[in-house]
């Protein structure tokens, strides 16, 4: 492990980096049965970039997302996200970090079925202060659901539900969005719409880290990180990212 820093303390991270990982390691189990999900991974993601992490099944990309999202703790190395060191965070500190620094978007939307789209977003907005309803409406408007705010999840399409979950992440006004196969449960057209929404968030200063096995999606990224067997095998800036509409799979 690198030097211990108090959780939440501002660190002189290299300026402009949303995520900075150095020799990041995550191992499950011990001895002969140990699984090295991540091995000596080092990278930096500048703020405001749309980054895709690619890799086949078992490459460690989900583990990476879990560690960056403080759903799991690294075994070794240093990891700083938005200036916060994620080493040695207790349960309460991790919860606070997830509330204030990141937003998650998962493949399965997991909306609360008894709340409307607006209420699903408002639920998180209430925790972060201010006028929750106004902020929730704005977030839903940003993702193009301004006219569906009073619909329950059962009345929304898959794509609409995913947009609600993106709005839910955005309403917290967090700098970093972590997306795990956000188009995995959607058809191609709907998926492209979702990618467009996510791409648009970077225009407003958010950083997006999207994990997928779909290499086509990587064409729209500003940077592509490739994982294989837990190791970072490539860190490639994309000079001319494709538009979401140009993608096909």
């Amino acid at each position: 492990m690198g030097k211990h820093v108090a959780a939440g303390a501002a660190v002189d991270a290299p300026s402009g980096h949303a995520i900075r990982a150095e020799n990041l390691t995550k191992t499950y189990g011990t001895g002969d049965t140990a699984v090295h999900a991540l091995e000596d991974v080092t990278f930096g993601i500048p703020r405001g970039e749309f980054v895709v992490m690619l890799g086949p099944s078992g490459s460690g990309k989900t583990t990476m997302l879990n560690v960056v999202g403080a759903l799991d703790a690294p075994t070794g190395g240093d990891l700083h996200v938005m200036g916060t060191s994620l080493s040695d965070l207790g349960e309460d500190a991790r919860t606070h970090y997830r509330l204030s620094s990141i937003g998650f978007v998962f493949q399965f939307f997991n909306l609360v079925p008894t709340l409307t789209a607006l209420e699903n977003v408002e639920l998180l907005a209430e925790l972060t202060g201010g006028n929750a309803e106004t902020r929730a409406r704005d977030a839903l408007h940003q993702v193009g659901l301004g006219d569906r705010v009073d619909h329950f999840p059962g009345q929304l399409s898959g794509g609409e539900q995913q947009r609600v979950s993106i709005a839910r992440a955005l309403v917290k006004d967090v700098p970093l969005l972590l997306c795990d196969e956000p188009t995995g449960a959607l058809d191609i057209d709907t998926g492209i719409n979702i990618l467009r929404v996510l791409r648009d968030t970077t225009e407003r200063g958010h950083t997006v880290l999207l994990v997928t096995h779909n290499s086509e999606i990587a064409r729209m990224a500003d940077r592509v990180l490739r994982l294989l067997d837990g190791r970072l095998v490539a860190d490639e800036p994309n000079v001319a990212p494709a538009a979401p509409e140009d993608l096909t799979w």
Partner: peptide, 14 residues
């Protein structure tokens, strides 16, 4: 569990 885990992931404490 899915909803609750997502709430936890998004920062709502247990």
């Amino acid at each position: 569990t899915g909803e609750l885990a997502t709430m936890r992931a998004n920062g709502i404490s247990h």
